[in-house]
Design a protein around this nucleic acid. Structure first.
Length: 664
RNA sequence: AGCGAGGUGGGGUAGUCAGGAAAUCCCGGCGGGCUCAUAACCCGUAGACCGAUGGUUCAAAUCCAUCCCUCGCUACCA
C-alpha cells in the first residue's frame, strides 16, 4: 500500500448508442472492485467519462440532423444516469470533448512532438467526393482484387480474408451515400510506436491485472510494431497542433480522457492529479473490455512513456458477453438494453450485478440467459442469502425482540474470518467470481448452522442456548451485509437498517464483520429479496425472441417496387424438361435441355443436389426465357429455371399446360 | 492466416499458473429430514475414463508435443 491513491478507470463508453449489458460487464466489476477496496481501507479514485469523437458520431449526428456535440451530450447523460441506476458511481464522469481534455490532449501531443516521437508522412486514403470527407475503412466497400468477393476497405472480410493495402480495393464505393469513392493523398502524422518495442517488452511483464491482457499485448509486440497514424482529416475532434484540417485520432484523446477527468475530479476535490499520474509509484488500474487490450497495453503505455507520465499499474480485461448462447449482435437483435430490457421493467440492479459477477470468471465469456438469470437469483440470492438473513432476523425479532449482548461463538467468528480471508485474496487477484462465491459460501454456512442448531426446537427447553445460536446467526448476517455490499449495495443497505443501524453501510469497513453487534432492539424485518417469477421469465424471453424476429425481418433486403411494365420485361414460360445430365467438375449443376413448344433450349441449373436426372425429365417447370445468355462452367445457358428456397423446390403448373405457355 | 482464450457428470460452471489419495458450486434426478423462514432450508445419493492421441513422472484434468472443435482479437471502427 503506497501513499498514493489507487486510481481506477473504466473504458469510455462511445456516445453513439445506448448502454447494454455488454457495457456492464466492464463497469459492474470495476465498481465492485472499487467499493471493496475502499471498504478495505484504500483511498480510491474512480474515473470514467464518455468518448465523443470519431467518424461514426459525426455520421449519426448528420443522420438525425443534430450536431456531434448534441448527440454526445445526450448519450453522455444517458450513460451517466444508467450507470447511476446500476449502482456504478464514479468520482468524475467527464467528456472527451470538454475543454479540459482538449487542452490536456493538445499539451500531450505537443510533448510527443517535442520529444521527437512524431513524424509526418503522405498517405493515400479513401475519400468520398459526394460526402466531402475521408472515409474510415469500415465505410468503404468494393471488390477484392484477389478473389472477387465483396470486401471492406482494409480486408476481404467475406472472401479470402486477405489484408488490403489502401488503393488495392476495386470499384470502391462510399457506404454512407453509395457514391463512388476515390483515393486522395494527404499528409498525416505518425507516432513512432516501433521505437517503443524494447520498452514494452520490459514493461509488459511487470503489468498487473489479468493475464489475458498481458499475453495478448506481449504477443503483438513480439510479432511486430508498426508506427501509428494519429491524425484524421475531419472537423470533429481535438485539433492537431499546427494543422488546420487535421484532428487527433480518437484513440489518442480517448485514453487521455482518463487524465483529464482525474484533473477535473482533483479540481473539485482539492486534490492533486499528479499523485495519480506522475512518478514511479502511481497506481492506475484500467478496467476494459477484452476488445481494447491493445490500446491500453501497447499504444497507451507508449504514449505515456513518450510524454513522460507514470505508467498503468494494472489492466483488467473482461471477457465477452453472449446472449442466450448467441453472439452479441445489435443488428441481429441479440442484445439486452440496460434500461429498456432490464431496469425499466422494475428488475433490481442488484440482481444483474450479482449475475454479472458470479456467473463465470471475469476473463471468460459470459452467457446471459433469462432462464439462468432467474435460476441464480431465485436459488442463490433469494433462497440462500435472503432466506438466511430473513429467517434469522425474523426469529430474533419475534422471540427475543432484538439483539442480546452475547458474544458470538469462536467457531462462528473463525468461519467469518475464513470467508473474509478468501474474499480478500481473490479480490486482489481480480478473481471476482470466486470472491462472490466465497461470500455466498458464508451464507450457506449460516443456513447449515441455523438448521443444525435448530433454535426453534432449542427454545422449548433451553432459551439461553437458543439465544446464543441466534446471536451467532446475527453475527453472520452482519458479516454478510458488510461483505456483500460491493455486490448488492442497495439490498445490503436495507439489511444494514434491519440490523438496527441508522447510518450508511458503505461508511463501515468490512473488517467490522467480526465486531459484536451489541444489545439493541430490532425493527420488524421484511424479506430483502423477491423471486423472479416463471411468468416474468417467459415474458422476458418472449421479448427477446420478438426482438430477434424483428431484426431478422429488418435484415431481409427490401426489394424496390416494380411497375407492371418492368415486370412485363420478364418472359417467363412453362418449359418441359427433355434431358438432364450432370456437368463434369460440378456437384451442383445440370445441363438441361427443355422444350418451349416451338424451340428447344439448353439451360444450366444448380439443382443437381436435389433431383436426379430421371426425376426431372418430363417435368414441366417455370423458366425465365429472355435472361441474358451466360456461360457457366464453360457450358452455355440460355434462361433460368425457377425454384423456391434453399432446397430448390421447383415451381410446376398445377394443371397441365402446353410447353411454352406464358406465365403472368 | 497469425495471435489469444476455451473444450470437465444431463445443462451451466470451479479447479489447470505453484502435479498427488478419481474433481467445486448452481440447476436438474432420486431418497430422507425440518417446519424458524419467501414450497424456502438441511442431510444423503446416482451421474464425468476431466476434447483426441502420444510423452514426462512413483503420481496428470493439472506439465510437454501433435491433432480436432468452439470463440475472440488482428493497428486508418470505436
Amino acid at each position: 500500500m503506497s501513499g498514493k491513491p489507487l486510481l481506477v478507470t473504466c473504458g469510455l463508453p462511445y456516445t453513439n448508442g445506448p448502454c447494454h449489458i455488454g457495457h456492464l460487464r466492464t463497469y459492474v466489476p470495476a465498481d465492485f472492485y472499487v467499493r471493496y477496496m475502499r471498504r478495505s481501507g484504500e483511498e480510491v479514485v474512480f474515473i470514467c467519462g464518455s468518448d465523443n469523437h470519431g467518424t461514426p458520431i459525426v455520421i449519426s449526428a448528420e443522420r438525425e440532423g443534430s450536431t456531434p456535440r448534441e448527440l454526445s451530450e445526450r448519450y453522455h447523460e444517458h450513460f451517466y444516469e444508467t450507470f447511476r441506476r446500476m449502482g456504478v458511481v464514479f468520482d468524475r464522469f467527464g467528456m472527451t470533448d470538454d475543454p479540459m481534455n482538449r487542452e490536456t490532449t493538445r499539451s500531450i501531443v505537443e510533448r510527443l512532438i517535442a520529444n521527437g516521437h512524431v513524424y509526418a508522412e503522405t498517405v493515400s486514403q479513401s475519400y468520398c467526393p459526394e460526402c466531402e470527407r475521408f472515409l474510415p475503412d469500415r465505410y468503404v466497400e468494393g471488390i477484392c482484387p484477389h478473389c472477387g468477393a465483396v470486401a471492406r476497405g482494409d480486408e476481404c472480410d467475406q472472401g479470402c480474408g486477405q489484408h488490403l493495402e489502401p488503393g488495392e480495393i476495386k470499384d470502391a464505393i462510399c457506404k454512407i451515400c453509395g457514391g463512388k469513392a476515390e483515393f486522395r493523398e494527404q499528409e498525416h502524422y505518425f507516432f513512432k510506436l516501433s521505437a517503443f518495442r524494447e520498452f514494452l517488452l520490459e514493461y509488459l511483464p511487470t503489468l498487473g491485472g489479468t493475464a489475458t491482457a498481458r499475453n495478448y499485448a506481449l504477443g503483438w509486440v513480439k510479432e511486430a510494431l508498426h508506427d501509428w497514424c494519429i491524425t484524421r482529416t475531419m472537423d470533429w475532434g481535438v485539433p492537431f497542433p499546427g494543422s488546420d484540417d487535421l484532428v487527433v485520432y480518437v484513440w489518442i484523446d480517448a485514453p487521455i480522457g482518463y487524465i483529464s477527468f482525474t484533473k477535473e475530479w482533483a479540481e473539485a476535490a482539492g486534490a492533486d492529479w499528479k499523485d495519480c499520474w506522475c512518478g514511479d509509484d502511481t497506481r492506475v488500474t484500467h478496467f476494459i473490455g477484452g476488445d481494447i487490450i491493445y490500446h491500453h497495453c501497447i499504444f497507451w503505455p507508449a504514449l505515456l512513456k513518450g510524454a513522460g507520465y507514470g505508467l498503468p499499474h494494472a489492466v483488467v480485461a473482461s471477457g465477452m458477453v453472449t446472449i442466450e448462447g448467441r453472439k452479441f449482435s445489435k443488428s441481429r437483435g441479440y442484445v439486452v438494453w440496460t434500461n429498456d430490457d432490464y431496469l425499466d421493467r422494475g428488475l433490481p440492479a442488484d440482481y444483474l450485478r450479482y449475475y454479472l459477477l458470479a456467473y463465470t470468471s471475469h476473463t471468460k465469456e459470459l452467457d446471459f440467459s433469462w432462464h439462468a438469470y432467474a435460476d441464480r437469483v431465485n436459488n442463490e440470492i433469494v433462497g440462500t442469502l435472503g432466506n438466511f438473513i430473513y429467517r434469522t432476523m425474523y426469529f430474533a425479532e419475534k422471540e427475543f425482540s432484538g439483539v442480546s449482548d452475547l458474544a458470538p461463538r469462536p467457531e462462528v467468528v473463525a468461519e467469518i474470518e475464513r470467508a473474509l480471508g478468501a474474499v480478500d485474496a481473490t479480490m486482489r487477484d481480480y478473481d471476482f467470481k470466486n470472491a462472490v462465491d466465497s461470500m455466498m459460501a458464508l451464507a450457506s454456512f449460516g443456513n447449515a448452522y441455523i438448521q443444525n442448531n435448530a433454535p426453534w426446537k432449542l427454545i422449548k427447553e433451553d432459551r439461553a442456548a437458543a439465544e446464543q445460536v441466534i446471536a451467532d446467526c446475527l453475527q453472520v448476517v452482519k458479516a454478510l451485509a458488510l461483505i456483500f455490499e460491493p455486490v448488492m449495495p442497495d439490498a445490503m443497505q436495507r439489511a444494514w437498517a434491519m440490523l438496527g443501524y441508522g447510518d450508511g453501510i458503505a461508511d463501515h469497513p468490512i473488517a467490522e464483520a467480526t465486531t459484536p453487534l451489541g444489545a439493541r432492539p430490532l425493527p420488524k424485518p421484511a424479506p430483502l429479496f423477491t423471486k423472479v417469477e416463471k411468468e416474468q421469465v417467459a415474458a422476458l424471453e418472449a421479448t427477446l425472441n420478438e426482438q430477434v424476429e424483428r431484426a431478422k425481418a429488418a435484415a431481409e433486403p427490401k426489394m424496390p417496387t416494380v411497375s407492371i411494365e418492368e415486370f412485363g420485361k420478364l418472359d417467363i414460360r412453362v418449359a418441359k424438361v427433355v434431358s438432364a445430365e450432370p456437368i463434369k467438375g460440378s456437384k451442383k449443376l445440370y445441363k438441361l435441355v427443355v422444350d418451349l413448344g416451338g424451340e428447344k433450349r439448353q439451360v444450366v441449373s444448380g439443382i443437381a443436389q436435389f433431383y436426379s436426372p430421371d426425376e426431372l425429365v418430363g417435368k414441366d417447370v417455370a423458366m425465365i426465357v429472355n435472361l441474358a445468355p451466360a456461360k457457366i462452367f464453360g457450358v452455355e445457358s440460355r434462361g433460368m429455371i425457377l425454384a423456391a428456397g434453399d432446397e430448390a423446390s421447383l415451381l410446376v403448373p398445377l394443371r397441365p399446360v402446353r410447353p411454352g405457355t406464358k406465365v403472368r
